[in-house]
Amino acid sequence: MTYVDLSNTLLIIGAGAHVPYDMPSGHALRAEIKKLYTYNDYINFSIQPRDEVGKLKWNILKTAMSLNVLSTAERNSNKKVFDTGLSETHYKQYFELFLKSFSESHVLSIDTYLSNVQKEEDEFIREVFKLFGKLTIACVIQAFESSSPLGGRRDDWIHHFINSFVRKSPNDLFKFFPKIITFNYDRIFERMLFTHLTEFHKFSHLKAKTEIEQLNILHVYGSLGDYVEWQEITELPNFFESAIANIKVIGEDRSDMKQVEDEIREKYKRANRIYFLGYGFDEDNNRLLRTSFGFDDWEINKEIYSTSIGIRKSDLSRIKKTLNTTKMISRLPDRTMREVSCSDLLFEQAPLI
């Protein structure tokens, strides 16, 4: 059997690529968090609310208490704030303070907000907002990840990818898998690969997990945690603690930043084709890519393509400036053309094969 070698192809995945799977974009994630701020019903820690927003807020508060978030903030800031034991009231108070600050900041995303929390003068508040912010991201995304079966959507590009390149013989095809860089915290791509391998090819959970880990998918800002076999959260007592530790935000001091840049550079160097899928071309992310690629003329000898959903004509000059690109700009449709989705790009306009 002949396989197409995709090992010299690089997929750069943004939040827009997972919207077809009901995952929130940056704007949608902001809206979900702001709903928590406007939720005014009383939260009884002993009784889970019936409505979805109430359930989410209750879950975040209960998890924050179980993880001793406020005590951790005291410890991280070297600041003693509470003379007596911490109560439910304390957690409600500081979570509301975080939600108010985020909602009234009027920034485009929670990531952008958290990147500026580093400037907060009060070290304790800085730690509280950072911990509550990461926990909220983890709880919201986990709720979306597990809310419904994946696949069967209009732009189900991962389904097409699996059936085009994985289904025939995964044992051999993984040798020719594309390089992947994702700016998403969720693990939708890994989950769909995992269930395909276990349910269709009858791989054991361990074998499927091992195969996927060997793909070295790079989550630039971390993910919800190490890859697991998708158990119920109740079976993973350290899930959210791990998620808080793994999630990183723009501008955060990171001991692993050089390693991340080196991984991006290595994947880029091995690629002769680069696909930007649902990538929003955030200026900070553009600068990270450009710095990691290692030189300004990064487009030389590369075929570069991009989806265009949500990209306006007015965005093109900004993209060109921060990513230093001309080749890709010419591949983006102008506003008079139909928007190009992931499936459109990968299987019609610039087919992988």
Rank of each mutant, 00 (worst) to 15 (best):
S71P: 00
V107M: 14
L288Y: 07
T336R: 15
E120R: 12
I247K: 01
K248D: 03
R126P: 02
Q231D: 11
H18W: 00
R191D: 02
S306Y: 10
W230M: 07
R287D: 08
C139E: 03
F189K: 01
Y91E: 02
T195W: 08
L150E: 04
I274F: 07
T38Y: 07
F132Y: 05
T136W: 01
L70M: 08
K100V: 06
F239Y: 13
M1K: 14
I12N: 03
L114I: 08
F174T: 06
R126N: 13
E303I: 06
K57R: 07
S255E: 15
D256W: 11
F95S: 01
F144D: 02
E213F: 06
Y91V: 02
A17W: 00
G222L: 10
K119M: 12
D155T: 08
E299P: 02
L135D: 01
R318M: 14
F183G: 00
Q231F: 10
I162F: 03
L218N: 08
T326V: 13
L352Q: 10
K62M: 03
Y275T: 04
G294W: 12
R338K: 15
S341F: 09
F281R: 10
V340Y: 01
Q93A: 13
L236T: 06
D172T: 13
I353C: 09
A243Q: 01
N68Q: 13
A243K: 00
S87V: 09
I12K: 05
E199Q: 10
N238I: 12
E52D: 09
L86T: 04
L135V: 04
D262F: 12
P20T: 08
L323R: 08
F276D: 02
I309H: 03
L277K: 04
S255A: 15
I274Y: 05
G16L: 01
S103N: 08
P178I: 13
S7E: 11
R312V: 04
I180S: 08
